[in-house]
Design a protein around this nucleic acid. Structure first.
Length: 561
RNA sequence: UGGGGCGUGGCCAAGUGGUUAAGGCAACGGGUUUUGAUCCCGUCACUCGGAGGUUCGAAUCCUCCCGCCCCAGCCA
């Protein structure tokens, strides 16, 4: 927390503020909060906010709460609340105390609204929504006062009470702060504090007919909870003066301060709840947790670990610039964690039969393979080896002119190493009527398991395989980026027009090694030479496993021309 | 044309007047390798949006200019 810490990373501007506050004894405890609105699922951008808020609390020995900003029942639901709670847990964060809700404070907020009316700093306005907009003025023109601005407090109070009890229809009245209709900051032009919404709320039911606006709720909630540093994204910077005005004009128990940082943008995807919801509602994806979605539930279903998400977030800057991070940076952390921790296995995506002519019929040899090339602790697995195998179609060629450098796989008449097993030679092929290779006739080189082949036999490379008799059939889903454009909604484009038509490729009849039969959706595997995979949590069944490709292996071998 | 915020290599980003402008991602060379993976080594900004100015000395201070983002919901 101070210079004695081993952290060599420079402090970001918020850490600096906190450090200064602590040193000058402005505060004794750091209290932060993650305040999502339960109107959708959390996405990778929220992960950054979560990591920032929980991270700061942890770093400075403070606390961080989880609080739902549920002030708009039109868009919110318990389904979203539950999904968000699960996502925060999955990321590995534990909030202080019970989950909080803005709706816990509706009573207090209402009392404070009454206070404001009583001191002449709020009034009931009966302008229609259209009139309200007109009266507000524009970016360059000042607004003008509402004709209701100076009505007696007693009158506003009576009306507010009627609004609360449901006697007023939606759109007829609002409670507005009396600030300054000529303010350069539009948020200060008598902002709406309460509006009528005669819809049931997912927590308070039909108890309320009015709901506080974001501005009237957020800062006061922070104050009630003793939040010391209220961290939000850049677009709220314009609201800060209003946040402070309310805190200063209300008998709140604390004076939290708001700080804004740049939200995370990622290329080749969208991080806006509105757009994500559209993808879901228009069935462009398979739901909020479709593996192509940048939602936390989508990433999780795809097989991305929470560690990867956290490390990615920690690699991001907390600053006031709003840039767009390259998806490759997320990919890096996904691979980094999986490479370290995912057990290896083999799965043939596009099977091509291989018949061994010098293998005794019916004979099965059980080979052993390490689950990880450089982590013995992950143990070994058994690999049955029989006379009929499958290798990937892409790993065989009958073009003998291919250079060894260009094609490090099996070529007709030549040798290749089967990973963790024998070296084999392709002696011939069987083709169908159309001339396509449907089977390879091959032979093993004896005594080559874990041993180099005799002089003169030079395998071109190492390929993965599976024993036909012992493999299990499975479906494999290969995912690609959801959008084919780096900036799907830039330059006046409609992001829906940029959806990548090849973002999902489904492979049937894939052959996985036996050990994969016991996979669960929580397990992550590396299918050697292919990438990282996990069992799909929705579509898999005992007799038909479905694997999602989390991400492919890095592929550096650009063909040279 | 009002207000707020921001501009450092392809991307993200340290840097808050003083030797050769951190680091990560990407890219590109090379080494190791029974995964074309991992790992390892190396290369990659005479320059900090632009132009002036202050100073012995500036990405860091001043002036003007240019560009980008956000704000006119009874959304958050």
């Amino acid at each position: 927390m101070d210079d004695s810490s081993p952290t060599d990373k420079p402090l970001n501007f918020i850490q600096q503020v906190i450090k200064d506050d602590l040193q000058s004894a402005v505060l004794t405890e750091v209290v932060t909060r993650f305040p999502p609105e339960p109107n959708g699922y959390l996405h990778i951008g929220h992960a950054k906010a979560i990591c920032v808020n929980f991270g700061l609390a942890e770093e400075f020995d403070g606390i961080c709460r989880l609080r739902f900003d549920d002030t708009n029942p039109d868009k919110e639901s318990d389904e979203f609340v539950q999904a968000i709670i699960e996502d925060v847990r999955w990321l590995g964060f534990q909030w202080q105390g019970e989950v909080r809700y803005a709706s816990d404070y509706f009573g207090q907020l209402y009392d404070w609204a009454v206070v404001l009316v009583n001191v002449g700093k709020a009034y009931i306005c009966e302008l229609t929504p259209e009139q309200t907009r007109e009266y507000r003025g524009s970016l360059t023109a000042v607004g003008k006062n509402s004709p209701y601005r100076d009505r007696p407090a007693s009158e506003s109070l009576a009306l507010l009470e009627q609004m609360r009890t449901g006697a007023i229809a939606e759109g007829l009245m609002t409670l507005r702060a009396k600030i300054d209709m000529a303010a350069a900051n539009i948020n200060l032009r008598d902002p709406v504090l309460y509006r009528v919404k005669r819809v049931p709320h997912h927590r308070t039911g039909s108890e309320w007919s009015i709901y506080p606006s974001y501005d009237f709720a957020h800062g006061q909630e922070d104050a009630i909870e003793g939040v010391s540093h209220s961290i939000c994204t850049l677009e709220f910077a314009d609201h800060r003066p209003l946040y402070e005005w309310l805190i200063d004009n209300l008998p709140v128990p604390a004076k939290p301060k708001q700080y804004e940082f740049g939200r995370l943008n990622l290329n080749y995807t969208v991080t806006s709840k509105r757009k994500l919801r559209q993808l879901v509602e228009e069935n462009i994806v398979d739901g909020w947790d479709d593996p192509r979605m940048p939602t936390l539930s989508g990433l999780r279903r795809r097989g991305v670990s929470s560690t990867a998400v956290r490390e990615f977030c920690d690699s991001l800057a907390v600053a006031k610039t709003d840039g767009t991070v390259d998806m490759a940076q997320l990919d890096h952390f996904i691979r980094h964690d999986l490479n370290d921790n995912a057990p290896r296995a083999m799965c043939v995506l596009n099977p091509l039969k291989v018949t061994l002519t010098n293998w005794a019929p019916g004979q099965v040899e059980t080979l052993t393979a390490a689950c990880h090339p450089n982590r013995e602790a992950l143990g070994n697995r058994e690999l049955p080896f029989g006379g009929t195998l499958y290798i990937d179609r892409a790993d065989f060629s009958d073009d003998t002119t291919l250079s060894r450098k260009k094609f490090k796989r099996l070529v007709l008449g030549q040798w290749v190493r089967l990973r963790s097993a024998y070296v084999i030679k392709a002696d011939g092929v069987v083709t169908d009527e159309s001339g396509e290779t449907i089977e390879i006739i091959a032979s093993i080189v004896p005594d080559t398991v874990g041993e180099n082949p005799p002089e003169g036999i030079k395998p071109r490379g190492v390929i993965h395989w599976v024993s036909a008799e012992h493999s299990i059939d499975c479906e494999v889903r290969l995912y690609d980026r959801l959008f084919s454009e780096a900036d799907p909604d830039g330059g006046g484009k409609n992001f829906l027009d940029c959806v990548n038509p090849q973002s999902l490729e489904v492979l049937q009849g894939c052959k996985a090694e036996q050990s994969l039969a016991s996979a669960t959706p929580e397990d992550h595997y590396q299918f050697e030479r292919e990438g990282y995979f996990c069992l799909d949590s929705h579509s898999s069944s005992k007799d038909k496993p479905v694997f999602n490709r989390t991400i492919g292996l890095r592929d550096n071998w650009q063909q040279k021309k």
